[in-house]
Amino acid sequence: MADKIKVVVCSGTACFVMGGSELLLIGEQLPDDLKGLVEVEGAHCLGKCRDGHKGGAPYATVNGKFVDAATLPDLIERIREAARESEARGAGEVGDEP
């Protein structure tokens, strides 16, 4: 069984002010093919706003990769990428690749 895709949503003040709370509902918004593959958690401020990270709040990470000015569709796209990557990796481990 592959590990779940981990989505961390920054719940810091700056991210909430810019609408980050919406991202906590990602579990309900996933398309059917991605349901059950994702684990969502809220986090204290990830610190990205303080070092002036490009794009601006709200921030989230998908399997450790940062998403800035995140929206639900952005997160779904990144989750889909992550799912594809882990599928490719899984296939590689089994040794089916040429």
């Binding site: 719940s11 810091g12 003040t13 700056a14 909430f16 002010v17 204290h44 401020c45 706003c49 303080r50």
Partner: peptide, 17 residues
């Protein structure tokens, strides 16, 4: 709530911390 949030952000105040 938006205005208070903006004041916190401008001041760098992290409520949860």
């Amino acid at each position: 709530a938006e205005e208070l949030g903006a004041l916190f952000v401008a001041k760098g105040i992290e409520v949860a911390e």
